[in-house]
Simulated assay, not measured.
Amino acid sequence: MKTITKSLMLSTSLVLFASPFALSAKAAPIPHEQVTAQSDFQLPTVTETIKRNIELSFEKQEKWLSQLELIAGEEKRKLVEEFFDEHISPALQNLLEEPSLKWNQVDHAIYQSLVQSGIPFLAAKAIAHGVTLSLKKM
Rank of each mutant, 00 (worst) to 15 (best):
K2Y: 06
T3S: 14
T5D: 12
T5E: 13
K6E: 10
L10E: 04
S11V: 13
T12Q: 07
S13N: 07
L14A: 00
L16A: 13
A18F: 09
S19R: 01
S19E: 00
A22D: 00
S24A: 15
K26I: 10
K26N: 11
A28G: 02
P29V: 14
I30M: 11
I30N: 10
Q34F: 14
V35W: 11
T36K: 01
Q38S: 11
D40G: 15
Q42K: 15
L43A: 12
P44A: 03
V46A: 08
V46P: 02
T49N: 08
T49A: 11
T49F: 12
I50D: 06
I54T: 02
E59N: 09
K60G: 00
K63W: 13
K63I: 05
L65R: 07
L65A: 02
Q67F: 15
Q67H: 08
G73A: 04
E74R: 09
V80Y: 06
E82D: 10
H87F: 14
H87Q: 08
S89W: 03
P90G: 04
A91W: 01
L92T: 05
L96S: 04
P99G: 00
L101A: 04
W103E: 05
W103Y: 09
A109R: 03
S113T: 00
L114C: 05
S117F: 02
S117V: 00
F121A: 15
F121V: 12
A123N: 15
A123F: 15
K125H: 09
I127G: 03
H129V: 08
T132K: 15
L135R: 03
M138C: 00
